[in-house]
Structures are given as C-alpha cells and as structure tokens.
C-alpha cells in the first residue's frame, strides 16, 4: 500500500492536536492517521508543542488537600485492566472508525441515493457537523451537488475521481463551501468512504428535492 497523496489541511491537524476540533471531524483525522505516517509525525510534533506550552504556563497553586484527596481516590481505584486486544482479522475500517461504528460494512443498513450510490444509516453528529459512510459501486456517479458548508471524504476502499483529482485508499478529499463536484468511482471495484459534512448537502438539478431528502440525516 502506498502512502496517501491527499491530506487534511495543516490547520485541521493543528486543531486536532490542540483538542479544539470537534468529534466528527476528529474521527476523520484520526482515521486518516491510520494510513498516513507523515500526518502521524506532524500530529506528534504538534502534541509536543502542546507539551511545551503546558510546561511553560504560569503555574496556578492547587489546594493543599488536593494531593491527599487524590491518593485516597487512588487507594480506592483498582488498577485498570490491560486494554482489550483488537479483534483478530483485518477490518476495512481503520481503528478509530471501527470503534465508533462497532460493525463491518456488511452488517450495516444502507440507504440508496441513486443506483450504485448508498449512504449508511449509521451516522454521528456534533454541532452542525455529521458523518456517515458513502458507498459507490464501481463506475458509479454521485449526482452533482453543491455544499452549503465544507465536505470531506476519506477513502477506505477503492477510489474515485472528480474535477480536483484522483483519490485512493487513505486519501482525504476536501471541498470548500459552494464547490460543485462530480465524483465518479473507479471502474475496478466498489469505493467506500467516510463522509463528513458541516451541514446537509443541497442538491442541484432536476432530482434535487428528492435527493435532498435522501441525504438528510
């Protein structure tokens, strides 16, 4: 497997390392990190930056009793059991997403948008952002749509292309608000993506009203 060619924006990695990025977008970043040694290195650097900033904060004295209270609590707390081993066998989902979904694609419910294009019934949302899975049959086209807010796709299986590039496993495609694009799945197999949006899509074109219903989650 080659390393990804398309990455989340550097500011997004910073927001992730600084802890300000919300859960839904963090899920996409963490899932991309599973594929991308370069972004893992960058996040480690940005966390080191957080470490330096923490160490350099002017200290605020804590209550005299805090350490004693802590030791009492620790005396009452059993040592944590060692983390449960990852389930044997390869999952199509990277770890952070596998833990969030708790099932493989075959076990999920899918909603057909147009022939060959499905969205998962599984979805998470926080604030104005939401995430779900997008599945495209080989060669399938996602209908033209524009965005009222940003959209990101992480490819987990297969690949797709649009006006902006060709995306393979591990790649992140990012679209700014109001960027129409036409994604077409590669011809040689199904394409599975994590789709993160910051507001529901608004479809353009004759079937827009119908598709908008399908895309609302």
């Amino acid at each position: 497997m080659t390393v990804p060619a398309h990455h989340p924006a550097p500011e997004l990695l910073l927001d992730y390392a600084a802890g300000s990025l919300r859960e839904v977008q963090s899920l996409l970043v963490a899932a991309h990190l599973a594929y991308c040694p370069d972004c893992r290195a960058q996040v480690a650097e940005l966390e080191a930056c957080g470490g330096v900033l923490l160490a350099d904060l002017p200290p605020e004295p804590v209550s005299d009793t805090l350490f004693g209270t802590l030791m009492t609590r620790l005396g009452e707390t059993a040592a944590p059991s060692s983390p449960v081993a990852a389930p044997a066998g390869r999952s199509v989902f990277p770890g952070p997403l596998r833990r969030a979904i708790g099932a493989e694609p075959e076990a999920l419910e899918w909603v057909r948008v147009v022939p060959g294009v499905h969205l998962s019934a599984w979805a998470v949302s926080a604030g104005t952002a939401s995430a779900c899975l997008l599945r495209m049959a080989s060669g399938a086209r996602v209908p033209a749509h524009r965005h009222t807010d940003s959209e990101m796709l992480l490819v987990m299986k297969g690949g797709f292309s649009d006006e902006f590039g060709a995306y393979r496993v591990g790649d992140v495609a990012s679209y700014e608000t109001h960027t129409p694009h036409h994604a077409v799945a590669d011809a040689d197999g199904e394409c599975l993506c994590l789709l993160v949006q910051d507001r529901p899509l608004v479809f353009t074109g004759p079937l827009g009203w119908l598709l908008n219903r399908g895309f609302r989650f």
Partner: peptide, 10 residues
C-alpha cells in the same frame, strides 16, 4: 477519536 498503536493500516 484516538489512533492506537495497532491501528496502522499500512
């Protein structure tokens, strides 16, 4: 969402 050591896909 955190990456764990055995999550690496490559």
């Amino acid at each position: 969402p955190e990456l764990q050591p055995d999550d690496l896909m490559s």
